[in-house]
Computed example of a mutant assay.
Amino acid sequence: MPTFETLSRFTADLQHLTPAQRWRFRRVVLESFVPDLRTGWLFRPGLRVKGVRIAPGVYELIRAPDGRATWSYGRELRGGERHIVWCGIGTHEIRIGP
């Protein structure tokens, strides 16, 4: 299982989501994102993961028509396991840059 951490902005953003939005994010992460991280470097086509042009090293996971979470790879904490740093979550209006 990949390790993860959340930035304070992610934690604050998460509180603004509805329970249904939080549930959908959790389901996408557990059922698609984590299994794809375990199997290799590629994400399934339906998952919609892409780099953020204005913030090198930051990626977005589009989880709904108007919902996304931004994240980056952190330093590996456990041998052979990816470490994910969740940066922000919300609609497409969430701030990306520093």
Rank of each mutant, 00 (worst) to 15 (best):
M1R: 13
M1T: 14
P2Q: 11
P2V: 11
T6W: 04
L7P: 05
L7V: 13
R9H: 05
F10Q: 08
F10V: 08
T11S: 14
A12C: 11
D13L: 01
D13I: 00
L14C: 10
P19V: 10
A20D: 06
A20F: 04
Q21H: 11
W23Q: 14
R24T: 13
R24S: 13
F25T: 05
F25K: 07
F25D: 03
R27Y: 07
V28G: 02
V28W: 10
V28D: 06
V29S: 08
V29P: 04
V29Q: 10
L30N: 13
L30W: 01
E31K: 15
E31T: 15
S32D: 02
S32H: 10
S32K: 03
F33N: 07
V34D: 10
V34F: 12
P35L: 06
L37Q: 15
L37A: 09
R38D: 07
R38N: 11
T39G: 03
W41D: 03
W41G: 00
F43I: 01
R44Q: 15
R44F: 04
R44Y: 07
P45S: 11
P45T: 08
P45C: 00
P45I: 02
R48S: 10
K50D: 14
K50V: 11
G51T: 07
G51I: 04
V52D: 00
R53Y: 07
I54K: 03
A55W: 01
A55K: 08
P56R: 14
P56K: 12
G57Y: 02
Y59S: 12
Y59A: 01
E60V: 12
E60S: 07
L61V: 08
I62S: 05
A64L: 13
A64N: 13
P65H: 09
P65L: 09
P65W: 06
P65M: 09
D66W: 06
D66P: 00
R68M: 15
A69P: 06
T70G: 05
W71G: 03
W71F: 15
W71Q: 03
Y73H: 00
Y73E: 00
Y73D: 01
Y73R: 00
G74F: 12
G74E: 01
R75P: 05
R75H: 04
E76G: 05
E76I: 03
R78I: 10
G80F: 09
G80D: 06
H83L: 06
H83S: 09
I84K: 07
I84N: 07
V85T: 01
V85H: 00
V85K: 07
W86P: 02
C87V: 12
G88C: 06
I89Y: 01
I89L: 14
I89Q: 06
E93F: 14
R95C: 09
G97V: 09
